[in-house]
């Protein structure tokens, strides 16, 4: 057991060669790979950290946006509800107004209809009354109602007020048309002549006349000249009579009230 110095030297050289070879093929590559991995992992960690921060920021932004969206949604919902309420009220008001208008129209129509009916009844009544009066007068006094009405008209002409007479004269003087005489029945020539002579007396001149039968007049006679009218009709007579009766009733009731 002794030291072989050649082997010692050879082993020292071998060892240093091995040191160099292992440094070249083992330590450097392995340590380099470890360093590269550490750097890579650090990079990934930093990247992940950055992404995490981004995600946190995004999350905060999303929460904020979500909150804002909820608020806006609620606001829009409230606005919509208000609009619906307002629209409902408006439509209800419109419908109520329309209903009111329809009711008024209906009421007006009913009143119109009622008036028409009343008017028709009145006209019918007049016709019936006249018919009865005519028959009664004819049977009892051998006088026709038409003749009686003309007589009354002529009497009214004779007793015409001076203002009215003046108006008739002025109307005659300013007119170029003939004097129109409308009746509900046919006038015979005697009655026409009587009327002509009475009117000529008032006018103080011999005027031209146009006699016409009008279906619009239920009964009576109407003289018209350039807008001026002078008439006597049963309706007017009855209206006048009704007015007089009403005034009498009113006066009577006032007197009774004063006595009380």
């Amino acid at each position: 057991m002794q030291i072989d110095w050649f082997t010692v030297i050879a082993q020292i050289i071998n060892f240093f060669i091995l040191v160099w070879l292992l440094k070249r093929y083992l330590y450097q590559p392995i340590l380099g790979a470890i360093d590269a991995r550490e750097k890579k992992i650090n990079g990934q960690i930093q990247d992940a950290e950055g992404k995490r921060e981004d995600a946190q920021r995004e999350k905060a932004l999303y929460i904020e946006k979500n909150k804002l969206f909820d608020e806006q949604k609620q606001q829009h919902l409230n606005d919509l509800l208000d609009e619906i309420k307002a629209e409902r009220k408006k439509r209800l008001d419109a419908v109520a107004g329309e209903a009111e208008m329809l009711r008024a129209e209906h009421k007006h129509a009913l009143l119109t209809k009622q008036n028409d009916m009343l008017k028709e009844i009145a006209q019918k009544t007049q016709r019936e009354v006249l018919q009865i009066s005519r028959k009664t007068l004819k049977d009892l006094a051998t006088v026709s109602l038409d003749e009686q009405m003309i007589a009354v008209f002529l009497k009214k002409l004779r007793t015409v007020q001076p203002e009215e007479k003046l108006q008739l004269i002025q109307a005659y003087q300013s007119a170029a048309n003939p004097v129109r005489v409308q009746t509900a029945f046919n006038l015979d020539s005697d009655l026409q002549n009587e009327i002509k002579s009475e009117v000529d007396k008032i006018l103080g001149a011999s005027a031209e006349y146009l006699f016409r039968v009008s279906s619009q007049l239920t009964n009576g006679i109407e003289l018209s000249l350039n807008g001026y009218k002078f008439s006597w009709t049963v309706s007017a007579y009855l209206d006048e009579l009704q007015q007089e009766v009403s005034e009498t009733i009113k006066q009577t009731s006032d007197a009774v009230a004063q006595q009380k």
């Binding site: 057991m1 002794q2 072989d4 110095w5 082997t7 010692v8 030297i9 050879a10 082993q11 060892f15």
Partner: peptide
Amino acid sequence: GSLSTTTAL
């Protein structure tokens, strides 16, 4: 196991 090697080391 050689003294030469261990000496070298």
